[in-house]
Simulated scan of single mutants.
Amino acid sequence: MKSMTVTPPSDNRIAQLIDANLDRAREGLRVMEDWCRFGLKRSDFSIQIKDWRQQLGVHHHNIYRKARLTSNDPAMGVSHPLQQVRTTPESVFIANSSRVQEALRVIEEFTRTTDPRLCEIATKIRYKAYEIELKVLNTSEGIEKKKTLKDCSVYLITTNRRNLEEVVLQALKAGVKIVQYREKFLHDNEKISQAKCLASLCKEYNSLFVVNDRIDIALAVDADGIHLGQEDIPTKIARELLGSEKIIGRSTHCIEDIKNAEDEGCDYIGIGPIFPSQTKKQLNPIGIDYLSKGLSKTLLPAFAIGGINSSNINKLNHINNLRIAVSDAIINSNDPFLKTEELLKLLT
């Protein structure tokens, strides 16, 4: 690219504020870079931010450094009370991203005629900083979802029922941390309305809300993810549509299914059916021994599914860190709250 001439500002105060804001922007970028590197383990983000920091460093010319104001700076050491309430890495990242954006805006305004190349770089980085802030927030959100998923022991799958919202509410109150909305009979408008209600309940109880099969409904209600069967849309396409922060689960019925789900980047799997299931009557049970074998073949959170209830769950007691997915056992119980509590206690 053709070089652009740098003209020293006629007013030394302008050189001082350019120097100060270059320092401010580069410092803020370093905070952002390190959180992406060490906190999120996202080398792509940290490399990009490091490049921006280096670009600004190259254009931090001596004419700005020599004008530096330190001991005579009337605002040196001044802090703000809000700095004391940044209690999460995300809040620190956002604060520094805002700091970078503000500093770059100042640089843009005061270098348009004297240092057009620096002005151009500051503009490009400022707009890119908006984009990476959103990506980082989505990544953090995805990490939190996966932490919640890992800690789930009972996975509730809904079926059509008149008072479904109340049943799910009672299960959430009892401690369920993931709910899958599975509905085969209602019209789409009814499904969306019901899914929105359930998604809101799950959010209130800091639980995950997943939609079975229907990515369009998952997107419409901003669900936490999607659950797919073996005949459903490929995982790669689902990921492209949903984004990296959403959860994708897949039903598996054999070792090959489990391996494929892991290779495709699914976040969790269901293994089954373990026992005869009222929901999946067409599938033959794979049995407990096959479940144990399947669990040994994957590092993904895996939920045993199919006909599991409080009367046969003791047959799975020998399996460490057992996770189960249930539908009828809770949805059609006389007391969903007590039944959920019972299953959770059996698993702990």
Rank of each mutant, 00 (worst) to 15 (best):
Q180G: 04
V136Y: 10
A171F: 08
I192L: 11
Q180D: 07
K135A: 15
A171W: 07
E109G: 09
D224F: 04
G175C: 10
G225L: 01
V221R: 01
D213Q: 04
E231M: 13
S140T: 12
I226Q: 00
V211D: 02
Y205F: 14
E183S: 02
Y130Q: 04
L156S: 03
Y130H: 10
G225T: 06
Q180N: 06
E166Y: 13
G142M: 03
Y130A: 02
A199I: 03
D151K: 14
K184W: 06
R162E: 15
L219R: 09
E109F: 07
K128V: 05
Q230Y: 11
R214M: 02
A174E: 08
R117M: 11
H227V: 01
T139S: 12
V154E: 03
E108R: 11
C152Q: 04
V136D: 02
E190H: 12
C152L: 05
R105F: 10
Q230E: 13
I125E: 01
T111R: 00
R161G: 04
E190C: 11
R126S: 06
V167W: 03
V211S: 02
I132F: 14
Q194M: 15
F110G: 01
Y127D: 09
L156F: 06
A129H: 01
K146I: 10
F209S: 00
S200G: 09
K147H: 15
E141H: 13
A174P: 11
L156T: 02
E109V: 10
I125G: 00
E108D: 07
K191D: 10
A174Q: 05
E204W: 03
K191F: 08
C197N: 14
N160Q: 09
R112L: 12
T113N: 10
S200N: 14
I157K: 00
L186N: 11
